[in-house]
Lab assay of single mutants.
Amino acid sequence: AIERGSKVKILRKESYWYGDVGTVASIDKSGIIYPVIVRFNKVNYNGFSGSAGGLNTNNFAEHELEVV
């Protein structure tokens, strides 16, 4: 089962992080479509409006993740 702290591989082909491994930061139990927040070591794009980097978290559905 996917739980907080799990290392997961991203299976969503259109994702910037496809094939990468991230760490589960949290799981939303409220029934939303993409409840699993995954944190990565790298950012997906340069930040804007003065922020240092881009996003390094993204929401995924459990079926888009594979525990490694």
Rank of each mutant, 00 (worst) to 15 (best):
I37Y: 09
G22S: 03
S30P: 06
W17C: 06
V8A: 01
V36I: 14
E64M: 03
E64C: 06
N41W: 08
V68R: 02
A1K: 13
G53C: 15
N41T: 12
E64S: 02
V21W: 08
N44M: 12
E62D: 07
P35K: 13
E64W: 04
F40L: 05
S26I: 08
K7H: 12
N58I: 10
S15F: 03
L11S: 03
K42D: 15
F40N: 03
V43P: 14
V21Q: 03
K9A: 03
R4G: 06
N44G: 07
S6A: 13
R12T: 07
G22R: 03
G31R: 07
N44L: 14
N46D: 15
V8E: 02
K42P: 11
G5A: 02
I10L: 03
G22N: 01
N58K: 05
L65T: 01
K42A: 06
A25P: 01
V36N: 00
T57W: 15
V68E: 05
I32M: 12
Y18E: 03
I27R: 01
I37V: 13
V36Y: 13
K29Y: 12
A1Q: 12
D28F: 03
V24G: 00
N59T: 07
N41K: 14
V38D: 02
E64G: 00
E3C: 15
E66Y: 05
I10C: 10
E64V: 03
A52L: 10
I2Y: 02
N59E: 08
P35T: 12
T23F: 10
V21G: 02
Y16W: 07
G31M: 11
H63G: 05
K42W: 06
S15Y: 04
Y18A: 03
I27N: 02
P35V: 15
F60A: 01
S49T: 13
T57R: 04
N46V: 06
A61H: 03
K42E: 14
T57I: 06
D20V: 12
N41Q: 12
E62P: 10
S6K: 09
Y18I: 02
R4H: 08
V43W: 14
K9S: 02
I37E: 14
S51R: 01
V36D: 00
Y16H: 05
G54T: 06
V68T: 06
I32F: 07
F48A: 15
N44H: 14
S26G: 12
R12W: 05
A52Y: 10
S51C: 15
R4T: 12
S51G: 13
A1V: 11
R4Q: 13
I37D: 04
G31I: 10
Y18H: 04
Y16S: 06
G5M: 02
A52I: 12
S26Y: 11
K9L: 07
I2R: 01
K42G: 12
N56H: 08
A61F: 07
V43G: 11
Y34D: 07
V36L: 04
E62Q: 09
A25G: 04
S49E: 15
E66Q: 10
H63A: 07
L11Y: 01
V43S: 08
V24F: 01
W17S: 00
W17D: 00
V43D: 15
F48K: 09
E66M: 09
V43F: 14
F48G: 15
F48T: 15
I2W: 01
R4K: 13
G19H: 05
G54L: 06
A1R: 13
F40K: 03
I27E: 02
N58T: 09
N46S: 05
W17K: 00
V21M: 05
K13H: 07
F60G: 00
V67P: 07
R4E: 14
G31L: 11
G22I: 13
N56M: 07
